[in-house]
């Protein structure tokens, strides 16, 4: 990235974060939504079993995946509502920079949710202590968020101009997200609570990294074509 694009990137990201900090529209809704889905999972799955620890990783990542849909669908709202997008597209900002700033915004929204959601899942669903596992799960979160952010930015931009975009986005986004959910749930499961299978954790983490790299390449090849007109 040239210094100029870096400046543009920072300006775009700071604009999004500042808007979010002032209105708190998205992050609060995402957080509440994630807690509600945990409660739903508890009554759908948790009440049928004595021990919920084996389900904790799955519940966490099913929750995050659904929450991500919410966050991704909100990521272009400021641009859409105030017609900022027209201005941005006329401005000499490379499409790559715009899309990357959105991807990073999604990563940060998710991280804000996860900082609260991960310990909550630990408290709600894991028996015994889990504090020592949090650094490893944070790493999983970072890897998974990168993949979700890259993909989310691409699909959110495409859904932007579609009819019935609220319906299109989850249908587009979730099937491609499945590998992340599977691997992140696997990685979390292998270290959360009493289980401590580092070989499995490394395998799943490696997969998450590969996923991020592959979709990074897809994004690099396709981002410039999304806002072509």
């Amino acid at each position: 990235m040239s210094p100029r694009s870096l400046r543009q990137f920072r300006a775009l990201l700071v604009k999004d974060l500042r808007l979010e900090l002032r209105t708190r529209d998205t992050a609060i809704a995402m957080l509440l939504f994630s807690v509600i889905s945990m409660v739903i999972f508890q009554f759908a799955v948790g009440t049928r079993t004595e021990e919920t620890t084996p389900f904790a990783g799955g519940i966490l990542w099913a929750t995050i995946a659904l929450t991500a849909v919410l966050g991704v669908s909100r990521v272009y709202v400021p641009e859409r509502e105030q017609r900022v997008l027209d201005g941005l597209l006329i401005a000499p900002v490379p499409r790559m920079v715009l899309m990357t700033s959105k991807a990073v915004a999604i990563v940060l929204y998710l991280l804000a949710v996860e900082i609260i959601a991960v310990p909550l899942v630990g408290i709600f669903f894991v028996e015994g202590s889990f504090a020592q596992d949090l650094p490893l799960i944070l790493l999983t979160c970072l890897l998974a968020n990168t993949g979700i952010g890259i993909l989310g930015s691409l699909f959110a931009s495409m859904a932007l101009f579609s009819r019935a975009r609220e319906v299109v986005l989850p249908v587009l986004f979730l099937p491609s997200l499945l590998p992340v959910v599977i691997a992140a749930a696997g990685a979390t499961h292998s270290v959360f609570g009493v289980s401590n299978d580092m070989a499995e954790y490394r395998g799943f983490s490696l997969f998450l990294a590969v996923y991020a790299v592959i979709f990074g390449l897809v994004a690099y090849a396709t981002y410039p074509f999304v806002f072509d007109d």
């Binding site: 993909l151 691409l154 495409m158 579609s162 587009l172 099937p175 491609s176 499945l178 590998p179 599977i182 691997a183 696997g186 395998g203 799943f204 997969f207 590969v210 996923y211 592959i214 979709f215 390449l217 897809v218 090849a221 396709t222 074509f225 999304v226 072509d228």
Partner: peptide, 23 residues
């Protein structure tokens, strides 16, 4: 244009889905 972009992204997902289900 969107169809083309999605066709590329979806094809990248196919092997990833397979390996994730397999592991």
């Amino acid at each position: 244009r969107y169809s083309a972009i999605y066709a590329i992204a979806a094809f990248a997902s196919v092997p990833l889905s397979f390996y994730s289900v397999r592991i």
